[in-house]
């Protein structure tokens, strides 16, 4: 097994609002193997984006990282000084956000924004910076880059803007790229271009990627490993083939069963009942128990994320000795999707 470029253990990020603590990220553990792509999936409010911001130490008040460790190539990021973090951001770890229009500065040209990165991290001057910016724009497939470099974000289409974001994120050839829903705002044909581009650039540069998404199709196509999050916790961590072939956690199964597929015929979708609990109604035991079709007495206690025989992790009582519900319960009925 390859080295892990990023190793997160029991990360906790909370927001302190009106005297109460909202645990947005509540004990997240996962690894990103070097050169591979890790997908983080989950629905809105599961803590995916806050996990990403925590890695870059971009959590602002009233939020705070309250515990856990983020190990990047042997360096503990939770203890890194601000100056060191500034050096890492955009240089060793880069991030692409969902909405390219709001993440680009509307009053600066594309070139000015790209040059900034070269100036700060590599001390390049205006002329050299512009040259590199044009090269970078060409690399991400922007037509007439020499002309585009002097244009403003509003002059570009959504797909072009996301390409510019990627160019900016990759300007300093980072070792880790965090892509937070990079294609959610884009049409499918443009999404296909962008995902392929990220994959190709990953091979060229040899970087690792964290792909945050809610789209299981995107996960299947781009990721090597997957962490499924629910209510601030990782409920399952597996290689991508195992996750789709043999999903273990009832929540993962629920997601797969409720997904309308374009590639196969389905009679009926099997939705997950109910909805995500509000932060002040969070169950103390397994967070998914109130919506879980298999929930039993023991689920009022919180299960641990435990490693299974094949090396994948799952946080569910069904896979433990203590399980007190139906023995050998069929969590995933493959018949449904084939």
């Amino acid at each position: 097994m390859s080295e892990n470029i990023l190793d997160i253990k029991d990360l906790r990020t909370s927001f302190f609002v009106e005297g109460s603590e909202v645990r947005a990220v509540d004990g997240v553990t996962f690894q990103v193997p070097e050169g591979k792509t890790l997908g983080i999936v989950g629905e809105s409010g599961s803590g995916k984006s806050i996990t990403a911001l925590s890695i870059l130490q971009l959590i602002e008040r009233p939020g705070e990282i309250v515990g856990g460790s983020i190990n990047f190539k042997g360096e503990e990021l939770t203890e890194a000084k601000n100056a060191r973090m500034r050096d890492i951001r955009g240089n060793e770890i880069s991030m692409i956000f969902q909405e390219p229009m709001t993440s680009l500065n509307p009053v600066y040209t594309i070139g000015q924004q790209l040059r900034e990165s070269y100036k700060i991290h590599q001390g390049l001057g205006k002329k050299e910076g512009t040259k590199r910016a044009i090269e970078m724009l060409e690399l991400v497939g922007i037509p007439s880059p020499a002309k585009r470099v002097d244009q403003y974000p509003y002059e570009l289409s959504g797909g072009m803007r996301q390409r510019v974001m990627i160019a900016m994120a990759l300007a300093c050839r980072p070792e880790l790229l965090i892509a937070d829903e990079p294609t959610t705002a884009l049409d499918v044909t443009i999404q296909a271009q962008i995902l392929e581009l990220i994959k190709e650039l990953q091979n060229d540069i040899g970087m690792s990627v964290i792909m945050i998404t809610h789209d299981l199709g995107v996960v299947a196509e781009t990721c090597d490993y997957v962490a499924v999050m629910y209510c601030g916790k990782v409920v399952e961590y597996a290689d991508v083939e195992t996750l789709f072939e043999n999903p273990r956690h009832p929540y993962t199964v629920g997601l797969l069963n409720s997904l309308p597929r374009h590639d196969v015929d389905q009679d009926e979708l099997i939705p997950i009942k109910g909805s995500v609990p509000a932060p002040d109604e969070m169950p103390t035991g397994c967070r998914f128990a109130p919506r879980c079709p298999h929930a039993s007495d023991i689920c009022s206690k919180l299960p641990e994320l435990e490693t299974q025989e094949d090396g994948n992790d799952v946080r569910c009582w069904i896979y433990t000795e203590e399980w007190d519900g139906e023995k050998g319960v069929a969590v995933y009925d493959r018949e449904h999707t084939t």
Partner: peptide, 23 residues
């Protein structure tokens, strides 16, 4: 092109993708 662009939620099935040029 539109159909081929949709990511398939099955890691074993890699679709032959047609990329459309530009916007």
């Amino acid at each position: 092109a539109l159909l081929s662009a949709i990511p398939v939620p099955n890691p074993k099935k890699k679709s032959e993708r047609i990329f459309l040029r530009g916007d």
